[in-house]
Simulated assay, not measured.
Amino acid sequence: MWSGILPAVTTKFKEDDSLDHAEMERCFGLQIDAGVDGLIVAGSLGEGPMLTQEERIDVYRTAKAAAGKRPVLVTVAEASTTAACAMAKKAAQAGADGLMVVPSPIYHTDARETEANLRAIAAAGDLPVMIYSNRVAYRVDVTPQLMADLADDARFVAIKESSDDIRRTTEIINHLGDRYAVLTGVDNLAFEALSVGATGWVAGLVVAFPKETVAIWQLMQAGRRDEALAIYRWFRPLLDLDVSTYLVQNIKLAEALAIKSTERVRGPRLPLAGERRAEVERVIRAAIETRPSLPTLEIAA
């Protein structure tokens, strides 16, 4: 159902910490103009856990207005199943095209609990679901066997594979064939995942460098692997910024430098400072200075 480049977009704030819908509209528009295949709001990069459920729906509405016919997914990442089901219902009522669901990020569920949690959320929202499997950040591993156990519910349509083990993409495909769309969720494993059969990329640095991200995907689809790899090699130092405790601050700084956006974050986060900021800024500026020329590619409307 979902494939290609789906940015996990950032949430923009004004100086008073309220939502900056005008800036989000501008930034989301840059993604759509570059040819992305959909948007995902209120994820980890979107500071979803720092937003109220009502704010998440407001961000969704702004994204949907920018996305037009392209799908917009709302992230569900709640400590309790009750709260997650409530969020899923609100997203459905607002017209969301689907959900990206994180198993409980606070209590580290076992396989039985994870299955029950995911089934309850899917039933509550009654929308297509992308399961976010990220054992590194959330300590809950949605294994290929668990995916097989959930396969009888047609609402589960896709996996955001973020185990940080490139072998997992092949394991899912070997175990389940094409039952699920498998999208990589680790920026600095994207080329590798696409090379072994991933059908898309839930991307982070795309929010600052949309054209380069889309170019890698489209070149891979066209069989122009060497051209895609050349861009990816240039991109790698930037993509490493996504695999960090400070990914939100890192990527918002990239947006500030590359697309002239803001880097405001919601507390307890603070913008980068000191030596850490200097190093991240060095990486971003070096990439901007050596930005590659992109081949001519058709971008689907």
Results as ranks from 00 to 15, higher is better:
Trp2Thr: 12
Ser3Gly: 14
Ile5Ala: 04
Ile5Leu: 06
Ile5Asp: 00
Lys12Trp: 15
Phe13Gln: 02
Leu19Pro: 03
Cys27Lys: 02
Val36Ile: 10
Asp37Phe: 00
Gly38Asp: 03
Ile40Pro: 07
Gly46Ile: 02
Gly46Thr: 02
Gln53Ile: 11
Glu54Asp: 11
Asp58Lys: 13
Val59Ala: 06
Val59Gly: 01
Ala66Asn: 02
Ala91Leu: 04
Met100Asp: 10
Val101Cys: 07
Ser104Met: 04
Ile106Phe: 14
Asp110Ala: 12
Ala124Lys: 03
Met130Thr: 07
Asn134Ser: 04
Arg139Ile: 12
Val142Arg: 03
Leu150Cys: 02
Asp152Thr: 10
Ile166Val: 15
Arg167Thr: 15
Thr170Val: 15
Glu171Leu: 13
Leu176Cys: 11
Asp178Met: 09
Arg179His: 13
Val182Gly: 01
Thr184Phe: 06
Val196Lys: 09
Gly200Pro: 00
Gly204Asn: 13
Gly204Val: 10
Val206Gly: 03
Ala208Glu: 03
Pro210Lys: 07
Ile216Ser: 05
Met220Gln: 08
Ala228Tyr: 05
Ala230Trp: 10
Arg233Met: 14
Arg233Ile: 12
Leu238Met: 10
Ser244Arg: 09
Thr245Trp: 13
Ile251Gln: 00
Ile259Cys: 10
Gly267Cys: 13
Leu272Cys: 04
Leu272Pro: 01
Arg276Ala: 14
Glu281Thr: 02
Ala286Gln: 11
Thr290Ser: 15
Pro292Gln: 04
Thr296Asn: 09
Thr296Glu: 15
Leu297Cys: 07
Ala300Gln: 13
